[in-house]
Design a protein around this nucleic acid. Structure first.
Lengths: 201, 201
DNA sequence: TATTATAGGGAACGAGAGGTCACTTGTCAA
DNA sequence: TTGACAAGTGACCTCTCGTTCCCTATAATA
């Protein structure tokens, strides 16, 4: 019946753009990877740039759907260990999911060329997670799990290192496991530094 | 007299590669920006790839010369405020020096394609500064300026946020001043958290 | 059954890419 | 003065790019 080729073109485009960048990708290879001849692609998109725009639209929509709205906030952990668990679930997912890896790579490669890629990169790499964890940490302070402090600053101090490790995994995938361990070690270090010490046991 | 054209070609290449990437740069434009015709470039480099390799060689040499050797370590600050000063001098330099900005951008754009770019990116973006500050923080702990702790972990927790702000400046230059203020705020926050509290005044 | 829209194949086009080559010019050493 | 060489020019080559056009096969529709 009707084709899902239009979708498959976007998948292939994500794969190739994330490896070679927009300029380094050519339609012939892209179509070939789908078992098509290149003119076939033009039945679904009118140009290479149209493919790029459609891909960006999809990435923007995906981001908005999954991280965009305030009601998407993760639950505030009930214990310091809960923060570690939540963080590691996030990290493990984000450094192993191929599609998300490729999305980050594309944004990395095109952030200086395309304004929309730049904006999305900014959110993806830093501001989005920082805003999210600002709320999380504020909640943890209310619960007495963290020392009262500037929750935005704490979120920044927490997310930037995690984000750096994620980028490290994208760049050097063979170090992924080590980076994950380091993320966990950092998370525990963070709790040790910022956690409330007055828990009597 | 004799030409510095070979040098100027590398400068122009850095500029164009950092904007449009290797694949997105063409020799005609590159030569034109030097007032040459493209065949003139081939008197100095045998191919586009040769230009790229020479540029990478230069970046690697520059990095090795300025940050590579242990004796290049910055002096250990004498006070918490000294850490802020030293950090802000570094940050101000690195986000305003055009050549360094372009170097970071090139490494960002080519890190997934070229192994040497990948390695240099890893050092530039995280491991180099982290190793440097591991030493600095160890020194500060010896002087009693910081709580005794894992100096490598502290360096990572300090450098990753700073590095994130530097990348933010590359991506969104209009936010440079704001990022600098945030870097300073973070540096002071860091000292407040990790500094020795037993200074009586 | 006849028709028509859709997905794809294949050849071809123009533009622009990287690269070559014969030629000119200026400079310096012998 | 002459010869050699480095630096730059402009025409040209080949290849590949994005894109277009026309053809076919298929499957749904009237």
């Amino acid at each position: 019946m009707a084709s899902d080729t239009k979708e498959r073109i976007l998948e292939a485009a994500l794969e190739m753009f994330s490896q070679n960048g927009y300029a380094g990708t050519n339609i012939r290879e892209l179509s070939a990877s789908l078992g098509l001849v290149k003119s076939g692609v033009y039945k679904h998109y009118e140009s290479k740039e149209a493919i790029w725009n459609a891909l960006l639209d999809e990435m923007i929509a995906y981001y908005a759907e999954h991280f965009g709205s305030p009601e998407r906030l993760p639950p505030v952990p009930d214990s310091p260990e809960g923060l570690v668990t939540m963080t590691m679930r996030m990290v493990n997912f984000t450094v192993h999911d191929e599609k998300i890896i490729m999305t980050r790579k594309v944004l990395t490669l095109e952030q200086f060329r395309d304004g929309r890629a730049r904006d999305l990169a900014a959110k993806h790499f830093l501001t989005g997670l920082t805003e999210m964890f600002t709320q999380v940490f504020a909640g943890m302070m209310d619960k007495g799990l963290l020392r009262k402090d500037d929750s935005a600053m704490l979120a920044f101090a927490y997310i930037a290192p995690i984000s750096a490790l994620i980028h490290l995994c994208d760049r050097e995938p063979e170090k992924t496991e080590e980076a994950i361990r380091q993320a966990e070690a950092f998370s525990r270090h963070f709790i040790r530094v910022y956690g409330q010490e007055d828990r009597s046991e």
